Amino acid sequence: MSRTVEGQTDMTAPVQAAYSYCEAVTGAQARNFAYGIRLLPTEKRQAMSALYAFSRRVDDIGDGALAMDAKHDRLESTRGLLDRIRRGAVDEDDTDPVAVALADAARRFPIPLDGLDELIDGVLMDVHGETYETWDDLKVYCRCVAGAIGRLSLGVFGTQPGAPGAERAAEYADTLGLALQLTNILRDVREDAASGRVYLPGDDLAKFGCSDGFRTATPAPGADFTGLVHFEVRRARALFAEGYRLLPMLDRRSGACVAAMAGIYRRLLDRIERDPEAVLRGRVSLPGREKAYVAVRGLSGLDARTMSRQTIRRRG
């Protein structure tokens, strides 16, 4: 599907077209991740776009309007496509551009494709209406839908030769995924409640008097919603601090990509912490200019150095 000549990838037209399709999907739908992905060199950017497009397809099935049985069938069919990619049974003549691009990316990078099986497992949890009583329960879900994406991405990024602690890189990538997912859960509590989904652990909801849920723009009488949010924010910050240990192990542009994506979510977390009830009134987001600023800081290494210093202080 592609061949390497003197260190350069000579890509066939169908494969290039497949990557272009995936990059278009990423640019149109990856509201936060696209800012980091743009900082990567071409081959890594293309591979990350293929991963995103496949993941987006899985998420869209879970969030779509199909009946539960139909969603289950579509997800298992997607798992079958993933198995074909894993077996090398997808070539450039396949009519599915996402499959063509992901198959080529898997040939060029050591991507642990089993992580996409985990993503499908996580979306099936959504389809079946799983709820989570404890943080340990929720971590299982977060590792499927976000930690796995961190480990898949690490397959594209790679680690720098001789980087200290590189044997734990996958663990840190997984933990950073958990931090991003918990931030997503806080941001989307009202939207998820409207869809009948509750992700925050049941014992946390009970502790802060929030077991009645989040279907209105104000907390239920007697609920300590601010306390609940601040409790989860502290948990997310601890996960970010642990996950940031990955950054020194990456090359400059891969590190910039991760720093940009993490930086955007950290700023979202800051906004949520300052005004917890904002998440009940609507979706908390950053303007595009602020996301671009975070990306520039990531490319310059400023956010990476800041994150590393914060991690060192916490460890000390």
Score class of each variant (00 low, 15 high):
180 L>A: 05
269 L>W: 02
261 M>P: 02
93 D>Q: 14
209 G>I: 04
246 L>W: 06
278 A>M: 09
88 G>Q: 05
296 V>F: 11
282 G>W: 10
316 G>F: 08
96 D>W: 06
258 V>C: 12
192 D>M: 03
81 L>E: 12
176 L>M: 13
238 A>D: 15
259 A>Q: 08
21 Y>Q: 04
305 R>E: 12
236 A>N: 03
55 S>V: 04
27 G>L: 14
21 Y>A: 04
134 T>Y: 10
17 A>L: 11
221 P>L: 05
33 F>K: 09
187 R>S: 10
165 G>M: 06
191 E>M: 05
161 P>M: 03
248 P>I: 07
301 G>A: 06
273 E>T: 07
56 R>L: 04
261 M>F: 14
214 F>K: 00
312 I>Q: 14
58 V>N: 03
54 F>I: 05
226 T>I: 07
89 A>R: 14
157 F>M: 11
275 D>I: 00
255 G>A: 15
307 M>I: 00
193 A>H: 11
293 Y>K: 12
280 L>T: 02
289 R>E: 12
135 W>L: 12
246 L>A: 02
188 D>Y: 06
240 F>W: 01
273 E>P: 01
99 A>K: 03
47 A>W: 11
43 E>R: 14
306 T>Y: 10
116 L>F: 15
64 G>I: 08
97 P>I: 01
315 R>D: 15
245 R>V: 01
58 V>W: 05
196 G>K: 07
26 T>C: 15
183 T>F: 10
119 L>S: 08
210 C>V: 01
279 V>D: 00
264 I>E: 06
185 I>W: 03
44 K>W: 06
33 F>R: 11
26 T>D: 05
285 S>H: 07
77 S>I: 01
24 A>L: 06
22 C>Y: 09
2 S>H: 09
65 A>I: 06
296 V>M: 14
142 C>V: 01
66 L>D: 15
267 R>Q: 14
185 I>Y: 01
42 T>W: 09
169 A>K: 08
55 S>N: 15
316 G>D: 11
181 Q>L: 05
170 A>Y: 09
267 R>H: 10
223 A>V: 11
